[in-house]
Write a protein that binds this DNA or RNA. Structure first.
Length: 257
DNA sequence: AATAGGCCCAACCGCGACGGT
DNA sequence: AACCGTCGCGGTTGGGCCTAT
């Protein structure tokens, strides 16, 4: 049972967008937003389907899009995130402000895949060539959940609870599996308990990068790597240098141990 | 100068998720 | 619970540009 096309093709324009069409779309969204993509083209006076409009806006016309070449740092981040997230381009894009999933997908297929393959053999010979999904599954809960607005503002935020799955072999195995769930700590003691009880040990090249929940002004972070446990706060100088942030999530590259 | 091949990137396609009825 | 409409995502395509021969 086939699904009907997203829009009637009759009379609708396809292919590259003209300057006039861009202007129509930008002006309409500036005035009215985009509550309904399907209805938008008609209202904006465009002979396009809603899907095409949404794509044009999200991938090209949005004012917060950063145009221009990717920096080396951005490329490195994409490569590392791809190790963890696989082909989840939107998830990767969410961690690179100003970059779109389409852009990242393009650059991956044209440049970074090659770059990764070139650099990988000597760095991490035990990693498979094309991991499609992570062996680390981390879920984060929104720190400022709008549904919880009536709860106390300074309530402790979420901690990430990590358990190692039964692994078939030693810690040097590249197939070690981890799962992770969120718990809400009710006090700093219990938070610390959770963090000390559940240290993340990742035995691959991603081990220098961790995800952590964030409080209003404090970060709880524990990482067991090479027998080091690392705790940090916003006051650490290196923290800001290596921090990439979006929404309530933080990505942090740890300094050399 | 011509052209074949590769690269780049905007745009399209099809599918699954999700929310409303 | 089932259906329907809409949205967002990942995969793919195709055309323009660049470069090597």
């Amino acid at each position: 049972m086939g699904r009907s096309p997203c829009c009637e093709k009759l009379g609708l324009k396809r292919g590259p967008w003209s300057k006039e069409e861009d202007d129509l779309l930008i002006n309409y969204i500036k005035k009215n937003g985009h509550p309904n993509w399907r209805a938008l083209p008609k209202l904006a006076g465009l002979l396009r389907c809603g899907k095409s409009c949404r794509l044009r806006w999200t991938n090209y016309l949005r004012p917060d899009i950063k145009r221009g070449n990717f920096t080396h740092q951005e490329e490195d981040i994409i490569i590392k995130l791809h190790q963890v997230l696989g082909n989840s381009w939107s998830a990767i894009a969410a961690r690179l402000p100003g970059r779109t999933d389409n852009e990242i997908k393009n650059i991956w297929h044209t440049r970074l895949k090659k770059k990764r393959n070139e650099s990988q053999p000597q760095e991490t010979p035990h990693i498979q060539s094309e991991p499609e999904s992570s062996n680390v599954d981390i879920h984060l809960e929104e720190a400022n959940n709008s549904k919880d607005n009536n709860s106390e503002i300074s309530s402790p935020k979420i901690n990430t609870e990590i358990q190692q799955q039964p692994s078939s072999s030693s810690s040097t195995s590249s197939s070690s599996e981890y799962s992770c769930s969120n718990t809400t700590a009710t006090s700093s003691e219990s938070r610390n308990q959770i963090m000390s009880d559940n240290l993340l040990e990742v035995d691959d090249i991603w081990s220098e990068v961790v995800w952590a929940p964030v409080d209003d002004n404090y970060l709880d972070l524990s990482l067991m790597e090479d027998n080091y446990q690392i705790n940090c706060s916003f006051n650490d100088d290196w923290f800001w240098d290596d921090l990439f942030t979006r929404s309530n999530e933080l990505m942090l590259e740890l300094p050399e141990l």
